[in-house]
Design a protein around this nucleic acid. Structure first.
Lengths: 225, 225
DNA sequence: CCAAAAGTGTTCAGTATACACCCATGG
DNA sequence: CCATGGGTGTATACTGAACACTTTTGG
């Protein structure tokens, strides 16, 4: 690491902030931390932290997620960068925001001495957020909603094996609208992203459901779900 | 501006890099500067520069564009942030990249002592680019191509008044494909974004063309052009 | 009157939507 | 045998794609 290219400049702290989502109790949840700072009484925030010169931005995100309890794989994608001079009252912090997705069972929130708590919070029951995190979170939800319509991105929110009803629930939850069962099946199968696994899931006094999995658990752009 | 929130951290230089496009001679062009630095012999780069703590990111972009010759309005939108530790050999520079659009006649490239030259370059005749600017530019072109399909974003590349053929040329240029004239007219008019202006444009030994303008020169999401 | 770009409709195929009943199981 | 969620097909409307000739002008 050498000196900076310009003689005179004011340096910023570069941070990442992550809107990490999962589906819990059939509802979309986001991971939030409860701050323990006098400037932000009773405020919550998105997880994140500073970036160091020894890692790229994606690596910084993964490191901070692991610190907050991430164990399994998480899907991450960059959302945008928030750099208003006054967004953080404690100094000039330019923050690169990420959208991240995981499954509730592979991510058990882990707190630390720096925070009061770390928890999954339903997105229709949000507390007050510090900094500009309300805006970041709104942008993340918007991106997720939009991307669900033209990609297989939900793969990152579901367990590896799932029933068609669970898949449809995920879509209905994120899009906040009812979807016709027959049409949904037709379209999903036509996209050719799924394959049956030779198992069924029995959950009560009714016909067991066939299990499916995504052929490829990586992002694919599809056009219209 | 107070001290930074963490006691120990390494600060980065925060920069903006701008992929500014225009249409010149019916072809998509990008604004490039020719570097005058020993580390980058004969290399070109996207315009841009450092962000200061007294401006937000959009303001920094507009300031740097004005320095390079921008006079009229330009459309700008954030593209993504590039933060690999080694992307700039002279130091740790995290760069927020922007997609920007303007019209050739309102932007006359202006050089300065720091550069050999500043020029509009056709995107199918690109020189070698420094840093990770080849990647940034490729991402910008991709974003532009994609956005042309579901928004009125071309308004920012065209003069206020234009003929249907000029409009279609812009689409064909950016999308790099032939579009049927009759279908294009039907779809564009159905989107209800245009209005006739009571003038025609005569350019030779043939029927003059009706002039149109966008009802609103601001980004609108449309679904399928 | 000729060359050149402007302007205009219809047909067809494929996709999106609306909609209701039988199936398999556990208790 | 009954309650519950799983699983299936068809008819209709709409949208996107293909396609060729007439109009207006300047020279």
């Amino acid at each position: 690491m050498k000196s900076h290219p310009e003689k005179q400049f004011v340096a910023a702290a570069v941070a990442v902030d992550v809107a990490l989502f999962c589906i819990k109790n059939q509802k979309l949840h986001v991971l939030l931390i409860e701050l323990d700072r006098p400037e932000f009484p009773n405020k919550w925030a998105l997880p994140g932290g500073l970036v160091t010169p020894h890692e790229n931005l994606d690596e910084a995100v993964m490191r901070h997620l692991q610190d907050r309890g991430g164990e399994g794989e998480s899907y991450i994608e960059q959302l945008g960068t928030y750099g208003d001079p006054d967004r953080d009252p404690t100094g000039w912090v330019v923050s690169v925001a990420y959208l991240a997705l995981t499954t509730a069972d592979t991510f058990v929130p882990k707190t630390s001495s720096r925070y009061k708590s770390v928890a999954w919070v339903s997105i229709d029951n949000l507390p007050e957020l510090a900094y500009d995190h309300k805006k970041i979170l709104a942008d993340a939800v918007l991106r997720l909603k939009s991307k669900v319509n033209y990609s297989n991105i939900v793969f990152a929110l579901l367990p590896h094996e799932f029933t068609f009803t669970e898949l449809q629930d995920a879509y209905e939850n994120i899009l906040e609208k009812h979807i016709d069962k027959r049409n949904f099946r037709k379209k999903m199968l036509a996209l050719n992203l799924l394959e049956e696994v030779p198992k069924v899931k029995a959950t009560g006094a009714h016909r067991p459901a066939q299990l499916y999995q995504f052929k490829d658990r990586a992002l694919h752009i599809t056009q219209t779900v």
